[in-house]
Nucleic acid binder design. Structure first.
Lengths: 149, 149
DNA sequence: ATAACTGCAACCAACATAGTTACAGCTTGG
DNA sequence: CCAAGCTGTAACTATGTTGGTTGCAGTTAT
């Protein structure tokens, strides 16, 4: 079935919330509330984002998380590569038999194909910024508000 | 870590072997030998390929597997969609909180982004056929042979 | 000091995967 | 006709990953 973890979704969700917050900061508990999830989980994922230079954290009372750079300079790909190990299409579990013409060559060939395909996906993710996503969230909110009238 | 199963790799490997065989057929045991794996595993995956119309099987003594259409009409994407459930980038584990502006809108927006990204990957896979892959396997073999001289 | 945070290690249950065993059913060759 | 050699499938195991949780040490503002 499915495959990859939901870490990318969590990361993008959190980044969008932080962009919404602007200059201020959010705690892992606040973000976990919106995710209906757990503060520790959020801290784990935001920790990866911090390692990638996307967010920063401050410890102690009144601490929390905030964006380390402008939301228009953070793409979905940035979030993705920060929290996920790039290999989506996994290769052979074991190296195939060296006694088979196909077996001894397919590995290297598949590697190229799969890498290119994964890169195509990442390039698509790279075309949407967190700022743009937040923009659309707010547009959807306005839509809702006017529909409720 | 990784994510997806190695079913695509196995499927493509098997299809390439069948293309190499041409008109004849291969048994699941022969394919499993090249994969250093198990006949049952191979039958499971080839079963999916048969459901997708890519290969056909004949039961009983002398039976086995063969391509159901020309290898130039089978792409890596065909193999991929036959054995894998399309969702690579998984969505939120739980639907996010409805009480949060971001939470109640991000799901639908991410769905679009992720779908597009997955489609970009599939389109890249669609550009390589099994025939082309086999061609490259054989080219690599010739390379090896001439290097050994 | 104490409250409110992050950071981190150590768990747990649930699930998916690769691999295996066992066996029923089909088909061909002798 | 019967045995050999296949597919088809169910059942089971070991392993790894994931989302989730608890507990606690360290840090900082009030």
């Amino acid at each position: 079935m499915a495959g990859l973890s939901s870490r990318s979704a969590v990361a993008i969700h959190a980044l969008t919330m932080l962009a919404h917050r602007g200059e201020g900061s959010l705690t892992s508990a606040e973000i976990a509330d919106s995710l209906e999830s757990n503060p520790v989980l959020v801290r784990r994922i935001l920790g990866s984002l911090r390692n990638a230079g996307l967010v920063s954290s401050t410890e102690g009372r009144g601490g929390g998380w905030s964006l380390a750079r402008a939301s228009r300079d953070i793409t979905l790909r940035d979030a993705y590569v920060a929290v996920e190990e790039g290999r989506i299409l996994s290769r052979h579990a074991h190296p195939p038999s060296d006694a088979c013409e196909v077996g001894r060559n397919i590995g290297a060939l598949l590697e190229v194909e799969f890498r290119d395909a994964e890169r195509a996906m990442e390039e698509r993710l790279d075309r949407t910024t967190i700022a743009r996503l937040l923009q659309r969230v707010l547009a959807a909110e306005r839509e809702l508000a006017s529909a409720d009238r």
